Amino acid sequence: MNTLVIYTYPNHKSLNYAFLQKVMEGSNENPNIKELQLLDLYEEGFDPLLKFNEHKRRRDMYCDPKLEKYRNQITWADKIVFIYPIWWGRPPAMLLGYIDQLFAANFAYRDKKGLIPEGLLKGKSVVCVSTMKGPTNYIFVWLNNAHKILMKRALFSFVGIKKVKFFEFGNMENVNGKQIKKLNKIYRYFKKVKD
């Protein structure tokens, strides 16, 4: 199983980075994971801004040479792991800009007759590891599960990815937020995951 880890947090001395380390540590010890690649969007200097004009059209993003490296990573991966904080009920703008550009028509999906397009990323699986300051059930109760709906229904299902697992960790700025227990949970999951 080829695994691509996409890390979206600007601080390498953070809890999010500790989660990244546990994902990498568990994955490196997992015999089911053949190869592992890391894409740190901030360290990479990824430009999340969409730029369109008469020379650069949105419908041509699927063949933009500046994005070829990232398209190749997604094509290569059997499993894609996203690690990010939840800010204002959704992933950071950096990650959303990556999604806007990479999950483009004629690469991630193809329009066809009817309402639902054809997903072109079938057979892949996704794991989302996210952290938030508020309680874990805040997003479910107060925001009607907006984060999962955005990621699973509006994005992954749309592009043909059906197998999606979420780890949403709340109270992460709380002294008693059980951070060590949650970090160990992520390590154990990635050490054993099969598909």
Rank of each mutant, 00 (worst) to 15 (best):
M1S: 06
N2A: 06
T3D: 00
L4V: 09
I6W: 02
T8C: 14
T8K: 03
T8N: 05
T8F: 03
N11I: 12
H12L: 04
H12S: 01
S14K: 04
F19A: 04
L20H: 01
Q21H: 13
Q21R: 07
N28V: 13
N28T: 15
N30H: 05
P31R: 00
P31N: 00
N32C: 08
E35P: 01
L36A: 05
L38E: 00
L39S: 06
L39E: 00
L39V: 10
Y42E: 00
G45V: 14
G45Q: 02
F46C: 15
D47V: 12
P48E: 09
L49T: 09
L49V: 10
K51W: 02
K51M: 08
F52W: 10
F52T: 15
N53L: 08
N53G: 12
E54F: 02
R58G: 04
R59H: 02
D60L: 13
M61N: 15
Y62A: 14
Y62W: 14
C63L: 06
C63M: 09
P65A: 14
P65W: 09
E68G: 15
R71S: 07
T75M: 12
A77Q: 02
D78F: 04
I80S: 00
I80F: 06
V81Y: 03
F82N: 03
I83C: 05
Y84T: 12
P85C: 11
P85N: 10
W88L: 13
W88N: 14
R90C: 11
P91H: 15
P91F: 15
A93T: 14
A93C: 12
A93R: 13
L96P: 00
Q101H: 14
L102R: 07
F103M: 13
A105T: 09
A105L: 06
R110S: 11
R110I: 06
D111A: 10
D111C: 08
G114R: 12
G114V: 11
L115C: 07
G119F: 02
L120T: 08
L120G: 08
L121N: 05
L121Q: 06
G123I: 07
G123N: 07
V126E: 14
V126W: 03
V126Q: 08
C128I: 09
C128M: 07
P135G: 03
T136G: 02
N137H: 15
I139W: 00
V141D: 01
V141A: 05
L143F: 10
L143D: 02
A146N: 14
H147S: 13
I149Y: 00
I149N: 05
I149S: 07
A154D: 10
F156D: 08
S157W: 04
S157M: 08
F158S: 11
I161A: 14
K162G: 14
K162L: 12
K163Q: 10
K163N: 12
V164Y: 02
K165N: 11
F166C: 11
F166Y: 13
F169N: 05
G170N: 01
N171Q: 03
N171F: 09
N171K: 01
V175M: 01
K178W: 00
Q179E: 01
N184Q: 10
N184V: 07
K185I: 14
Y189G: 05
F190R: 09
K191I: 08
K194A: 12
D195V: 05
